[in-house]
Design a protein around this nucleic acid. Structure first.
Length: 785
RNA sequence: GCCGGAAUGGCGGAACUGGUAGACGCGCUGGACUCAAAAUCCAGUGCCUUAUUGGCAUGUCGGUUCGAUUCCGACUUCCGGCACCA
């Protein structure tokens, strides 16, 4: 079977050749770098989970790889790195289960991920690989924390968290449903704990304004704007009747103050306590429209009437909130008023000049809760002195290494796992003889992913986070691709840190990511019981319309959801590659649909791209002609169109349409009477970013020197891309009724006279029914009757 | 609930700036090759209508326009985010 393409051998061969030759390594030498323009293309690096890579990961990676390869062929220095967001909760859970050090589990998971990723033939510069849980890396995460602290952007505060007494630990929101731990049903309560906070709110305005300067999808910018939530509000102080206290209320509509019939204060407002309303504090305000009269009245600042003060939590998500209710115009106030029989009145709008409050700019954005009661994260580079004050460490003392501990769970006293460390880690003798204690909280997973794109630039620098000349050459990231689920949090946090680093003079750009693109998620079916617990597809069987857990026959519901480790619904790319090969896998990932759209994985769709690969192979085995490509005018034209199409649409990330065009070319070239070598060689070049393995193999077989990956991207002849003969559509009242072929670029008169020759139009014209004619050059003629 | 998306044949999708709806692929049907099968190749394939130079079709309802998958308004369903999954 000489005609069949054995992908497994060929793909391994080229992956080895690429690695041995080091063609995807980028120079660290600045003089060398400055000879060419730069292109920094970045993937959101993965969290190496135990369940391995799923088919959703390589979607974005394939997209960036195609761009990286085409940019290299177009003469750019391309920085295309990969690494691991290695700290994180699931690894810690696995560590608890196996009682194995999370570093060992992480190493194992990274090994798996890397092996899986490498099978797809991506052109990463692996010499720049980073791992956020490596002390050489997290030293710099801690270093950035020191910068934040010195700038007054890190502080301690008592904050409510989800506490599970039974487990003696804090739980993530996703682990809780109806105040219970999903896995075991143990109750979860809100408990106040001392937490590190980052003052991201200090950067709210800049985070908002600088969105105007980046080339990001408008919807992502909009989500960030809404998240920051800038609003201009009026603050009005209302006298509380028979009290010294004043109540500060907020309103966006001060002109409507005369429509106010009552005021509402949130249940967590500090005045609740101050005004001796403790007995109400015990009440749970879980229903949105639940509320009670506090027994107090406030005085209307304009008409001096008494307004009842109610307590309810429908008003805002901010704890410290009070409003004037205008049930006539505000929907929520209206519902609340009707429910509690409060008056709804008509009123006159007051003039701006008579506003009784002060204008105040508000942001919805809250400060960032930056500590976790977990082991597998960066230790804070701080000491708690005997007088309970904070002392930060010197840069020379970094990194603060994670200590070895016996178990990866909270202590019996409900302290974080780090409290299990031995005294020589936990206690640090000070020069004055007192003993300082280490912080036992760790940083959240976001920390490492907030600045990793900088470390790729200079990954082995042990004196600096990265060399500033190198930083100036590569930054900003030209294209950043990752899942839309990161549209707000990761991207906002990373922007915040970047701006702080900019203020510290560490980086030269205000924004880290010039262009952003969010790939849509690949979804698949997941199964969940009534408590919200997930099951693997193997654990579930279908009977009729319903799904049951095999073990106990309990019914589960199914839904199409984002593929993720926590939902137990991932599809493994290894199986796909075993069956169809890496090139087919790459093509399918992109052929499925537009990159930014949500897609459901259907393995059957792989058949088509697999056949395409085989067709390309058979086509290349034909007897090639050495005649000039131009002597096959039709195929030459199609080739030029295909080069143009791919050159333009690949950069626009419309990969699915490019692959369709490549297929059109192959269909035509397969049935063409002769196939000139020149045409095939050019086609192989434009195929190579998409299906690099087969492209290299054919390139070599055609007798070319070197790698096709290093070949020059072909140019196209614009004249060849224009059709000289076109179809004019003839419409009557906007409906297509006929069409005719003619040459391009004719005048309206010429088009009109040709259309009037058509029988249908002739009759229409003779009956004198034509009232109006609309002609669109080279496209349409529309007769209106 | 709030914020952001999506909806086109049996299926994934195409239509770049308001101008031929269904490119390309999957599936299906028929044919060629074969002892047979696989693979491959050729033809057909939105729905309705007996054919048609007919009618209906881009989630639903309405609007703007000579003309709407594309613009505007309302709605339905599904998906993502909502600050400790990342």
């Amino acid at each position: 079977m000489i005609n069949s393409y054995i992908f497994s051998e060929v793909e391994l061969k080229w992956q080895n050749k690429w690695e041995q030759s080091g063609i995807f390594k980028v120079s660290q030498n600045l003089e060398e770098l400055h000879k060419k323009p730069k292109y920094y293309i970045l993937d959101m690096f993965p969290y190496p989970s135990g369940s391995g890579l799923h088919v959703g990961h390589p979607e974005g990676y394939t997209a960036t790889d195609v761009i990286a390869r085409i940019k290299r062929m177009q003469g750019f220095n391309v920085l295309h790195p990969m690494g691991w967001d290695a700290f994180g909760l699931p690894t810690e859970r696995a560590a608890v289960r196996e009682n194995t050090h999370p570093a060992i589990i992480t190493k194992r998971n990274i090994g798996n991920f890397k092996k899986q990723i490498k099978r797809l033939g991506f052109s990463y510069d692996w010499s720049r690989e980073i791992d956020t849980s490596n002390p050489d890396y997290y030293k710099w995460t801690q270093w950035i924390f020191l910068k934040l602290y010195k700038k007054g952007l890190a502080y301690l505060e008592n904050v409510e968290v989800n506490w599970c007494q039974k487990l003696g630990t804090v739980l993530a929101n996703e682990e809780i449903k109806d105040n219970k731990y999903i896995e075991t049903g143990d109750p979860v309560e809100r408990r106040v704990m001392r937490q590190w906070m980052l003052r991201i709110t200090a950067y709210a305005e800049r985070l908002l304004v600088d969105l105007d300067d980046v080339d990001w999808p408008e919807n992502v910018k909009e989500m960030q704007r809404n998240w920051i939530g800038k609003s201009v509000k009026y603050e009005i102080d209302l006298q509380i009747e028979n009290q010294d206290e004043k109540l500060k209320i907020y309103t966006a509509n001060p002109e409507a103050i005369n429509g106010c019939t009552f005021c509402v204060i949130s249940s967590k407002h500090h005045l609740i306590e101050k005004l001796n309303l403790e007995r109400f504090k015990m009440l749970k305000l879980d229903s949105e429209n639940f509320g009670y009269f506090t027994g107090k009245y406030v005085i209307h600042p304009v008409n001096k009437k008494r307004l009842p003060l109610w307590c309810a939590d429908y008003i805002n998500e901010i704890d410290e909130m009070a409003i004037m209710a205008v049930p006539k115009i505000n929907k929520k106030d209206n519902i609340f008023a009707k429910l509690h029989n409060l008056p709804i009145i008509d009123y006159e709008i007051i003039n701006k000049i008579d506003y009784v409050g002060i204008e105040k700019v508000n942001y919805r954005l809250r400060d960032w809760l930056f500590s976790r009661q977990r082991y597998w994260g960066e230790p804070f580079p701080v000491l708690i002195l005997s007088d309970d004050t904070i002392k930060i460490l010197n840069e020379e003392e970094l990194p603060v290494l994670l200590p070895a501990i016996d178990e990866y769970r909270s202590t019996g006293n409900c302290e974080p796992p780090l409290a299990r460390a031995t005294k020589d880690w936990l206690e640090v003798l000070q020069t004055d003889g007192t003993i300082a204690k280490r912080e036992t909280n760790t940083m959240p997973q976001w920390a490492g992913s907030c600045w990793y794109y900088l470390r790729y630039l200079d990954p082995n620098n042990s004196f600096n986070l990265c060399n500033s000349e190198i930083e100036k050459y590569w930054m900003p990231v030209d294209l950043y691709i990752g899942g839309v689920e990161h549209a707000v949090l990761h991207l906002l946090y990373a922007r915040f840190w970047h701006k702080v680093l900019y203020d510290c003079g560490v980086v030269s750009t205000k924004e880290p990511f010039k262009k952003l693109f969010n790939q849509g998620m690949i979804l698949s079916n997941s199964y969940q019981d009534e408590n919200g617990k997930y099951y693997f597809p193997e654990q579930v069987s279908q009977i009729g319309q319903n799904y049951y857990i095999k073990e106990n026959n309990k019914i589960v519901k199914t839904q199409i959801e984002k593929m993720s480790k926590s939902r137990y619904n991932v599809i493994n790319p290894d199986e796909v590659i075993d069956k169809y090969g890496a090139d087919a896998m790459r093509l399918y990932e992109l052929f499925m649909g537009p990159l930014d759209q949500v897609k459901q994985w259907e393995t059957s769709g792989l058949e088509g791209v697999y056949r395409f690969i085989q067709r390309v192979w058979r086509m290349s085995l034909r007897n090639l002609s050495n005649i000039n490509g131009k002597s096959c005018p039709k195929l030459w034209k199609t080739l030029n169109k295909t080069i143009k199409f791919s050159s333009e649409r690949t950069i626009e990330l419309k990969f699915n349409t490019v692959i369709a065009q490549l297929m059109i070319f192959v269909n035509e070239a397969t049935s063409a009477p002769i196939l000139p070598r020149e045409i095939l060689c050019t086609f192989i070049k434009i195929l190579s970013p998409y299906a690099p393995h087969i492209a290299e193999e054919i390139w070599e077989k055609l007798g070319n020197d070197g790698f096709v990956a290093n070949a020059e991207w072909p140019k196209f002849d614009e004249d060849q891309c224009i059709e000289s003969e076109i179809t004019i559509v003839v419409q009557i009242n906007g409906k297509k009724r006929a069409e005719f072929l003619t040459s391009r670029g004719q005048t309206e008169e010429m088009i009109k006279s040709q259309a009037l020759e058509l029988d249908k139009i002739k009759i229409l014209s003779q009956e004198g029914q034509i009232k109006k004619i609309i002609i669109i050059q080279d496209k349409i003629i529309n007769f209106i009757t």
